[in-house]
Write a protein that binds this DNA or RNA. Structure first.
Lengths: 150, 150
DNA sequence: GGATAATCAGACCTAGATATCCAATTTAAT
DNA sequence: ATTAAATTGGATATCTAGGTCTGATTATCC
């Protein structure tokens, strides 16, 4: 349904948003979101390429959001790493169908559209501010001051 | 979004439903739905195991629906080959979360639920009877009488 | 301003899952 | 018996997830 990669990307973005007071380093994000660090590194690169986060190398560097949480939808995040593709043309390319989709694929596309819309209207801010019993990811909000990483 | 396998299964079921006057043979279904025959064979077995189609070996055999099209939802078809899994527990199993989902995964699950519901209330019959410009799959409804398969 | 350490970026490799192919076997009808 | 079909199992390819190592960039400290 939703790829592992997309799930990871969402977790990372939420984590970065939750700790927006300072750039977050890959290792820390990985730890806080339980995503394998080596793989996460690649996902973060995709997010940076899509302009959702900004990266900064060197000491004190890491990743920060490129826009306020209210401006980032989870659709953008998903699309950055694993684009949701609508069915706009017949998957079997039957000449007789042309542009029009048959009833089956019309239904499929409608379902995809539902998800797309739901994702589009959900922003990071909503996720952060939502009053649920569990705070998103991570046991506790990590402190800012540096500490022995071991 | 929707796996290739699920897409194939749906096509096959629609095809069988459209040609319900006689058992449909793997080769014919493959041809009519543009699904690789060898792979389709395995998918049909899954559908048979789930009780959605009945199989008959030997001459005059093939696959037929196990129930009227109005009783078969496309959710059942998808679930037979590639089950849609709701998010019912925290994907990072954080002790602090327990049963409750955080805002992020609550949203994800809601999206999945939308699809699940949409699929649940769409039956094969609806797909067959829907007035669209294109009939589902296949160029023309295949004729029943046997013919040189080549 | 140069050495050093922190950090991202990128290339390459491995394992597992998904998709596809092929041949041998079983079942049923004529 | 012969023929037409599904069933089964294995072999192969392609994709996804994840790992490893090296290089490039940047900040800090002396």
């Amino acid at each position: 349904m939703i790829s592992q990669t997309a799930e990871y990307a969402l977790r990372a973005m939420v984590f970065i948003a939750m700790n927006s007071d300072s750039p977050q380093v890959t290792e820390k994000i990985a730890c806080g979101t339980k995503v394998p660090a080596s793989y996460l590194s690649k996902i973060l690169q995709l997010l940076a390429k899509s302009g959702l986060v900004k990266s900064q190398r060197g000491i004190g560097g890491g990743f920060i959001l490129a826009a306020p949480p209210s401006k980032i939808s989870i659709l953008e995040i998903v699309n950055a790493v694993d684009p949701i593709k609508r069915i706009d043309t017949c998957p079997l390319d039957l000449s007789s169908h042309g542009v029009a989709l048959c009833a089956l694929h019309k239904r499929m596309d409608e379902a995809i559209q539902l998800v797309e819309q739901a994702f589009k209207k959900t922003t990071l801010r909503e996720i952060l501010s939502k009053p649920t019993k569990s705070i998103p990811l991570c046991e506790t909000k990590l402190s800012t001051h540096r500490r022995t990483n071991h």
